[in-house]
């Protein structure tokens, strides 16, 4: 088994259920001889202790150390990522907790947007503008051109749906909505923050890991 090559690419994020031993093939994709791949993939990286919901950073150095311990002459090549974020899954939320959260946020957003749109109308003197447009179209001065304002209000709703692409949904190409993209970016920023502060998340640097 001397002088074999192994190519390792760490995954970016991994979620594990609460346990302290993580097999290497959870953490990384690797390319090497088949029999080696199996035995190395089964090797564990041991974490001293972890709590639910906690995030631990495992670096490529940890993997190298682990592999070198068993195969000292292995040539290890790293491809890509140097760090892997291991998140320990917490208990799943109960159904009622979930719905409580959904309901609460939905109510906040509902009343918040209702108020925001009223503020907006006052800010930009929308009633004046509507009267003016109604006057241009019909030549009649009317204080409340409701026939125009009700379609306007419905238009706001459809416009938002249009923006989030709920209207022309193409199931095939699976294109994410702007919110999903934003959600992804947010998650990525959080991950980057954790990596930048990984000393705080590295509970047992160096020798405590076997």
């Amino acid at each position: 088994m001397d002088n074999e090559d192994i190519f390792i690419r760490l995954k970016e994020t991994v979620k594990v259920t609460a346990r302290t031993n993580i097999p290497l093939n959870y953490l990384a994709d690797m390319v090497t001889k088949r029999e080696l791949k199996h035995s190395i993939g089964q090797m564990n990286i041991k974490l001293a202790f972890i709590n639910e919901g906690q995030t631990v950073v495992i670096t490529a150095l940890d993997l190298i150390k682990r592999i070198k311990a068993e195969y000292p002459n292995m040539r290890i090549h790293l491809v890509g990522n140097n760090d892997c974020l291991v998140t320990v899954k917490g208990k799943a939320l109960r159904r009622w907790q979930r719905w409580l959260g959904v309901g609460l946020v939905s109510l906040i957003l509902f009343f918040g947007s209702a108020m925001a749109v009223m503020n907006f109308h006052t800010d930009v003197s929308m009633p004046k503008v509507h009267q003016q447009i109604y006057w241009i179209v019909t030549g009649v001065e009317l204080e409340h051109p409701l026939i125009m304002q009700i379609p306007y209000s419905l238009g706001i709703g459809f416009g938002m749906l249009l923006f989030f692409n709920h209207l022309f949904r193409k199931e095939i190409n699976n294109e994410p909505t702007p919110l999903e993209v934003e959600m992804f970016l947010y998650q990525q920023n959080v991950n980057q923050y954790i990596l930048a502060h990984k000393d705080d998340h590295d509970l047992h640097p160096g020798d405590h890991r076997s």
Partner: peptide
């Protein structure tokens, strides 16, 4: 007067997109 539905609707669509964006 029902012709004013058209500008109303399209202004609304625009404001909706704006609010979402």
């Amino acid at each position: 007067d029902y012709c004013s539905i058209i500008p109303g609707l399209f202004i609304g669509l625009f404001v909706g997109c704006l609010a979402a964006a």
